[in-house]
Amino acid sequence: MSRPDGARTTAELDAVIEQTLRDSELEHEHPRPGAWVVDLPGTKKLKTVCGLIVGEHSLRVEAFVCRQPDENREQLWTYLLQHNARMYGVAYSIDGVGDVYLTGRLPHAAVTSDELDRILGAVLSYADDHFNTMLEIGFGTSIRREWEWRVKRGESLRNLEAFAAFADPTRGA
């Protein structure tokens, strides 16, 4: 039963979240009432872990995207902020050490199966679509060093292929 102020109970919201995650066949955990951890499978970022936390008036959505950049912090922050203006339901943010997250809030009344599907899709899309660019900006030197090291040792470059255009000196810049 909804409360008179329009806010819904944790149990009501948990039921909507659980049904949505089951219908979407997403791996998830429910460690306690009002708390969900969802694995969103991607292609560039193989998995984005998204937390859904029921608060008193809203559902908080939070997903780790990447650790703090090694270099070009201002360039990465600019890139992320420019994307925020065009994003749906969540925005890029950083924590106290500079790790990158996607965060958002939904009022209780907006927590429906369709809206959860849209928000989780947005989280997955933004984390996955921009991941390689974020790594190139914030970790380019490390990626180039790793590429060189693997080439010298004859190691596989398979999981670095997405960065070949800028990491492989034989391809020309």
Rank of each mutant, 00 (worst) to 15 (best):
A7D: 12
T9E: 11
T10C: 11
A11Q: 13
E12C: 06
L13H: 06
E18F: 09
E18A: 12
Q19R: 15
Q19T: 11
T20N: 08
L21Q: 09
D23K: 14
D23Q: 14
S24Q: 15
S24K: 12
L26V: 01
L26H: 01
E27R: 14
P31Y: 09
W36G: 07
W36Q: 09
D39G: 05
P41W: 09
P41D: 09
K45Q: 15
K45A: 13
K47E: 10
T48H: 08
T48E: 11
C50M: 12
G51H: 13
G51Q: 13
L52S: 04
I53Q: 15
V54D: 05
G55D: 08
E56L: 12
E56Y: 08
H57W: 11
S58L: 03
R60T: 13
V61G: 02
V61F: 03
A63P: 00
F64K: 10
V65Y: 05
D70F: 09
N72I: 00
R73N: 07
Q75S: 07
L76F: 05
L76G: 02
N84P: 02
A85T: 12
R86K: 12
G89P: 06
G89R: 12
V90S: 05
A91D: 07
I94P: 03
G98S: 06
Y101S: 02
H108W: 06
A109Q: 11
T112L: 12
S113H: 08
L116G: 05
D117P: 00
L124W: 00
S125P: 00
H130W: 01
H130G: 00
N132I: 09
N132M: 11
T133Y: 01
I137K: 01
G138V: 00
G138P: 00
I143N: 03
R145Q: 14
V151Y: 02
K152M: 10
E161Y: 06
A162E: 03
A164P: 01
A164W: 03
F166C: 01
A167F: 08
D168T: 04
P169N: 04
P169K: 06
T170Y: 04
R171C: 08
